[in-house]
Every structure is written in structure tokens, then in C-alpha cells.
Design a binder for these strands. Structure first.
Lengths: 340, 340
DNA sequence: GTGATGACCCAAAACGTGGTGGGGGATGGG
DNA sequence: CCCATCCCCCACCACGTTTTGGGTCATCAC
């Protein structure tokens, strides 16, 4: 394996001159520079990664921490897609900027995260969808290590990028309203998830803003799983009057809800409309194709990467919270309704 | 940031003793060991990653190279799922063995791959589904750097792990035959892909083995895209006699094929049966749910990781080629047929 | 009492790179 | 012809760790 010393010898110069050439620093005669470059090519020299990192005190690499649920075997609820898209966005950005992306384990303890910081294997960390809790977030923040959270950090002064759960839910209600719906129900996600809470809050705000009524039974719990969506829909179908539209705060539950409606002999969307959230890959393939809010996952990753890079290079991000809009994808699970 | 020197000073020993303790080497008094450990805890010391890698001449990290198609924006053919599953398998294995997984760019040139080797950022590389070609593979092999290919390496003596495309295709034909089908057609993938060729070869072998006929028109080209499957099916439907079953060598094309059949007013599976390959996430959700061969993606990744680890630690793999079986997932696109 | 034997521990030399201070050679002006 | 000036280039240290070749002390057998 060729070292910088070999290159120097071959080019007839000293190591430092080679270093200067490689790092594009001034003070090297063009001819010498060319000779060095030639030697580099001939020897197929590439700077040793560890040595450079050790000396420069930076790794030119960032870590991505994904929830440990990622590690679970193939399940009915493959969240893999979610991370893939986000990571792709971040990966493309970092590749562009000559930084490596390494997948980091998620042990979930503060000490573990701290150890990642301390060993300096990476220059910064991207937390994807971890729901760290504000206490953990604060402690991490106090370490002074660059990190960005994808999702709601639940804490000010922590840089995070999130989809606009609140506003998007408002838009769902407005859309349904504009289609003539007045009795609109919601199937919620798990309460501990900030994303769920934000979506519910946006929904409630829009309902109130439009002066609609929300009977208690229209506000159904769920846990993001298909099965929970199915169960929630069954309960909704027994309420009188029945809602004409249902907003399931993720696509999985929307799929379950549609199944429940069909099982009950109801036609979607003619007899009951359904809107989901996420736009997972199967959304266009279910029957009927699902109308949903598409999460800008790729952009989430890219934007988070940009912010992290900013923190790494300049010490701080220009903005501490970025919220990206979701876009409504109209397919076939919502019908216009002439209110009786 | 605490260094090993700080720990040594606090524990009142030399650096080498600290190092011995941290690496579980003998020759240090239990009492001293305890004192060192205490100092480590108090100072929250974690060995610097770069320094350790530099000295040890290994990074405790492996690279994963995914096709550059991974980098493309959200497309109609999201292969992301494919890599996700494979990477999960590999990731879990490496995490278990305290190695980091870093995503590597795919520039596609030999010089680039070589440079990854030379900079020693990783101890080994996993090539996912790259169809490197046997020339590239040979050249990489000659570098003597640990790497494993997921997919058919197309070259002996190169360690690779692949799904049993040949045998699985035979099983598809046998299955169809056992259901009473005698006129079986195939929709192929792109010819340059070894996976396509293997699947086609297995298909042909089984057809011949069973003494079935294969009119030229039953052997349709395709390119793995939904659209190409659709087109191929249209052509198939015009042949006389029409096939009673169609084997599309991936699920995307199977979906296209089903769409074409439905567009032509044919019922799947009653009038024509379809089998796919992959078991992509949407397979159970299309209408009707797709019968297909499930690729053991997770296991592919885990097995490749195991082999790579073996090469890294012991210099060579115990076996140079592992072939994993696909499993038939029976859903609703194949009907039993009483041959007229 | 003395030499041999272990058990522990230390100092110093790597690993390959980046940066810094200073030295040497060429060039041009006096 | 000499000196000042400016480029270039070199030797050397530092980065934080692992490893190697001892060195010191107590113990033990003779």
C-alpha cells in the first residue's frame, strides 16, 4: 500500500510538498506539482483515511441513527421504506459533499449516544424519527456535538426538520370540507408520538375553525397499524349519524379502515370517504387507490443533511427548525358529497 | 475530550497499561485494572476511532455499495425496498459484531473501487446487485481486498451469495404444471442481467424436462418495468393458442401483465394465471393478491455479511458461493386448470 | 545468600498524515 | 559582485492509539 512517503520519493520531493499538492495549498511550483500528481497516479496513491482523520480531527463522515425497530425482521408494517427515502435524501447530499454516511446502532441510552460523539467516528449525527423525548434531547444538546433530528424534537433550540403535520392535517379537513363533507372523523396514531399529536391538533383546529361538530365517537384511537385502523373503522361505522369521511393519520390505518368498510358492505368512496397520510408505496395499488398526504421524505433527509453540514462546518445552523409541507395526492378514496 | 493519557495519569499508570486493560489483555494486576476502569468511567473516556484504526490497520467498518439507481429520485419502480431488506440483514450481523456499516457511493469505475480499498476507510465491501461484469470482478479480485457480491458474480472463485434463480424458476414451472397448466409463457427481464438469464434458463430447463412445448411467442422480452410487463402480456394474449399461465420474472412485470389481462377483459386467475418473482411489499395488496416467489433478501444480506466477516478475520471464506432458495407464496393469481 | 523465574508495569517507537518554522536557491536590483 | 527578496521545499512535531522490548520487584529453589 503506497504511502505519502512513497509518493514523495518517487516525485523527488518531501512529504510535506506532497501534502500541499494534495490539499491544494499554494507555494508549490506548477512543474513540481505536476510531478507529484504524476507520482500519485503511477503509484495509485490514496491518502489513508484514518491518518487523515486523526490529524485533521474530523472524520468526513456522518452517522445516521435509525430506530431499533428497523432491525426487526420483516413485519406487516415495513417502515423500512420510510428510512430508505430519508436516508437517500441525506446520502445524496453528503455524497455530493464528499462525506461518508455510516449507519449507527441505536441502543437508546444517553451514554451510548455520548460514546459515539466521544470516539469521534463521525462529525455529526442524524437522528431519524426517534422520539427521543425532550429530556434526552436537552442532554444531547448540552454535549455540544453537531446533530439534527428528523421529526419533532419537542424542544426549542434543537435543530430539527419535520413534515408539517399540523398544517397538513388542517388541509385534509379543508379539502374534505370543500368536497361537501361535514361529518368528519379521525383515526389517531399512538399518543406518545409527537407526529400523532401534531396531526390530531391540526385536525381539531380545522374542525373548530370551520365550525363543525366533533362527537366524541368521531375521535378514535389507533396505533398506526393496519389492524387498529380496521378496528377503529368498525367502531365508527356503528355511530349515528355515521361520518361521511374519515381521516386516518397514516396510510396503514387507512388501508385497514377501507377493509373494514368493505367488510361491512360499504362502498368507498361513494358511501364513505377515506384520507390517509404518508403515501406509502402501496397506496396507489390498493383498491380503490388511496387519497393521501404525501410526506416529503426525500426532501426531509436532504434538508436535514444540509443543516447538519452547516452545523459541522460553521458551528451553527442558520435556522433551528424547518417544516416541510406535505402534498395532497388525490386518488379515488374521496368522493364529493352533496350534504342532505 | 479525554485521551488515554488523561486516563493513565488519573489512574497513576502508563498509557500502555490502560491500553492493556481496555483490550482485555493479560498481565495487569486486578487491582490496577479496577483503578484504570474507574478512571475511564470518571473521565467518560472512549478510545479515539481514527487513532485506533490507524494503529491497528483496520477500521472495524465495512462498506456497502448500492447501485447508483438508488440515488435517483422517487421513481415508479422503487428498488429501495430491495436494498433496505438486504442492508438490514447485513447491518444486524455487523452491529452484532461491533462493526460499523457505511454506505458507499457507486461511481462504477475500477479506479474508484480501488480507491476505496486503498484509503482503508473500511475493512471490506459488500456489492449489492451491481452486475459488475466478470472483467471488473476479476480485476477487483486481483486486488486481494475482502469483498462479497450479492447476486451472481458470473465468475468462479469470487465469493458471492445469490438467490437460487435457476432452481426457483424450475419450481414455478413445476407448480404451474401441478396445477394443470400445460401452455406456460414467460416474460423475461433485461438480458444483460444475470438474474434474468438465470431465471430464464431455469424456466427453459423445466419446460423441456416436463416435455412441454414452448412456441417462440411464449418467450417474451421485458425489462423489469411494469409497463414492459403490460406490453408483453398484450402480445401474449394475441397468440393462438393463448397460454393458460404466465411467469413474469419479477413482480413489477407481473403487475403490468395482470393489468393488461384485465384491460383485455380477462379474469385473473380464472382465464389466465400469473406468477411473479420477488414478493415486493405491494404484492399482497394488488387485485387479486399476487402469487410469487419470495426472495430471501434479509437472509441474503445476513449471509453475505457472515462471509465477508469471515474473509476479513480469517483471510478467506469457507465457501465461495452460497445460493439461497426462494419460497413460493401462494396467493390468488394462479387457478387450477383442467386441461381440455 | 544468590541466581532464576514470573508478574507487572513503563518508555518509546510506530501507524500515515497535516502543519509550522526555518533554510536554501534563484532572481533581480544596486 | 553582493545582498535582499521571494519562492519553494525540507525537517520535525503532533494527532491518540497499540505494541514491543525491556526493566523492576518479589518470590522461590538451591
Amino acid at each position: 500500500m503506497a504511502t505519502i512517503y512513497d509518493v514523495a520519493k518517487r516525485a523527488g520531493v518531501s512529504r510535506s510538498t506532497v501534502s500541499r499538492v494534495l490539499n491544494n495549498q499554494p507555494g508549490v511550483h506548477p512543474e513540481t506539482r505536476e510531478r507529484v500528481l504524476a507520482a500519485v497516479r503511477e503509484l495509485n496513491y490514496h491518502p489513508n483515511f484514518a491518518a487523515r482523520a486523526l490529524k485533521r480531527q474530523r472524520a468526513d463522515a456522518v452517522g445516521v441513527i435509525i430506530p431499533s425497530s428497523f432491525r426487526e425482521p420483516r413485519s406487516d408494517e415495513p417502515r423500512g421504506y420510510y428510512f430508505t427515502e430519508i436516508i437517500r435524501g441525506a446520502y445524496n447530499y453528503f455524497t455530493e459533499h464528499r462525506m461518508a454516511v455510516t449507519l449507527l446502532d441505536d441502543e437508546g441510552t444517553f451514554e451510548f449516544y455520548q460514546s459515539i460523539f466521544e470516539r469521534r467516528q463521525v462529525d455529526g449525527i442524524l437522528f431519524i424519527d426517534l422520539e427521543l423525548g425532550s429530556d434526552m434531547t436537552r442532554r444531547l444538546k448540552s454535549l455540544g456535538f453537531p446533530f439534527v433530528i428528523i421529526g419533532n424534537a419537542g424542544e426549542p433550540d434543537v435543530v430539527c426538520v419535520d413534515v408539517d403535520n399540523y398544517g397538513s392535517s388542517q388541509r385534509v379537513v379543508q379539502y374534505l370540507y370543500s368536497q361537501g363533507h361535514r361529518r368528519i372523523a379521525i383515526i389517531n396514531g399512538p399518543e406518545r408520538r409527537l407526529a400523532s399529536r401534531d396531526r390530531r391538533a391540526g385536525f381539531l383546529a380545522a374542525i373548530e375553525h370551520l365550525g363543525l361538530e366533533l362527537p366524541e365517537e368521531y375521535d378514535q384511537p389507533g396505533d398506526f397499524s393496519e389492524r387498529s385502523g380496521q378496528k377503529a373503522m368498525r367502531r365508527l361505522l356503528q355511530t349515528v349519524p355515521r361520518p361521511t369521511a374519515v381521516y386516518a393519520v397514516n396510510d396503514r390505518m387507512a388501508i385497514g379502515a377501507i377493509r373494514a368498510a368493505r367488510d361491512a358492505g360499504l362502498n368507498v368512496p361513494d358511501e364513505i370517504s377515506v384520507v390517509g397520510f404518508d403515501d406509502i408505496p402501496v397506496a396507489p395499488y390498493i383498491n380503490p387507490p388511496l387519497t393521501t398526504m404525501r410526506q416529503p421524505l426525500y426532501e426531509l433527509g436532504a434538508e436535514a443533511a444540509r443543516l447538519l453540514h452547516e452545523i459541522i462546518t460553521s458551528g451553527a445552523a442558520s435556522v433551528s427548525r424547518v417544516v416541510l409541507p406535505a402534498t395532497l395526492i388525490e386518488r379515488n378514496t374521496v368522493a364529493a358529497r352533496i350534504e342532505p
